[in-house]
Nucleic acid binder design. Structure first.
Lengths: 193, 193
DNA sequence: TGCGTGATGTCAGTGCCTGACATCGAATGG
DNA sequence: CCATTCGATGTCAGGCACTGACATCACGCA
């Protein structure tokens, strides 16, 4: 089996999540992941650049969806407002119904420094893409970067809350709520939003 | 030689910088670094946790100096002001007279994704330490985190400018200048500073 | 002068990751 | 219905990062 079973990539990702969760990231070898997926170590590296990347395979789609959302926001929307709206909308479509999966994934990442590194660079890449989208809307560079970075910071906090929450609740709601709290705390009289 | 020559750690760091600069990070093996330092691969790993860490060995001292500076700031200083002042002061004492070294080091880091990952987690660690110091001054958690993250963002931009600048100029001055620009752009009417 | 101690060397081994080449299964065209 | 082709997978060999265990050396101290 393996040469003909469908969805090799998905099986690898699932096997990796399971093993990382059971015995930890460092204690899992790529050979074990491949074996559980009924494949070979070599095939794992054809689907994922390295042992960490298997946990971050969705980030490219997330990135392009976010960029699309920002670019199609009404021209009247202020920079940070456009970013927050994009994060709320796209976040919901990407994570709705996957809270349990997200929780397990985040626990794995939080438990390992290498995985935290990878997460940070993925978030930085998202911020940079958002800043680019804002600039294409005519937002000056520094403001675009600041709004993008702030938006990502908001998303981090909101995502953390969403994952930790006992009850079900939409990620989008938490993103907007967190953004409101930020503007209340950080800039009582500003017009950034 | 090697067993008795002094400053093994420094020789290793110097050899690594030189080789990373000459042929790139990936194209350099740890064995080559050790050989240039007159030591052994095994000894390299006794001084540095991994091949990347040799470029970030000063970050622990930087961290504790920043924390000290924030904690000893006048009680009247607002959170972001305290952070910016700490970054300006400590940045100067750490980097004064080492602009050329910093420039070469930054070029090496910018050229490699693994090194950028490591840099990001180091900066995140600094931000977290700064937020902790602010909280110890009585600043509420969310404000502390926001001020710390903002301060680090300011420092990143200022450092980038300092490294790129054609003329000599103090890093501290650029930090303060960048912070001023940020508050002018981001929050025209806020009282954060 | 002998002895302990910390730094370094040596050696063997594991695991991540890659290049080169073989092989299989399915689609395609005749 | 068969031959060809092509993409996905397997196999194999190897480089390099990193680690544990143990030996060895230089130095300080009794």
């Amino acid at each position: 089996m393996g040469r003909w079973e469908p969805n090799a990539r998905g099986r690898l990702a699932e096997a990796a999540m399971a093993l990382y969760g059971e015995r930890g990231f460092e204690q899992t070898t790529v050979a074990e992941i491949a074996e559980r997926a009924g494949l070979t170590e070599r095939t794992f590296f054809r689907h994922f650049a390295d042992k960490r990347e298997v946990l971050f395979s969705g980030s490219e789609e997330l990135r392009s969806a976010l960029v699309d959302a920002v670019e199609s926001a009404p021209a009247s929307a202020a920079p940070l407002a456009a970013v927050v709206a994009a994060l709320a909308q796209v976040g919901d479509t990407f994570f709705a119904g996957r809270r349990d999966h997200s929780r397990r994934r985040q626990a794995i990442i939080d438990a390992n420094a290498e995985l935290r590194e990878r997460e940070l660079i993925k978030l930085a890449t998202l911020a940079s893409a958002l800043a680019g989208a804002l600039r294409r809307r005519g937002v000056p560079g520094p403001v675009a970067s600041l709004a993008a970075e702030t938006g990502i910071a908001v998303f981090k906090v909101a995502f953390e809350r969403w994952v930790a929450a006992a009850s079900e609740g939409s990620l989008a709601g938490l993103v907007r709520e967190t953004a409101d709290q930020l503007s209340a705390v950080a800039a009582p009289a500003t017009e950034m939003q």
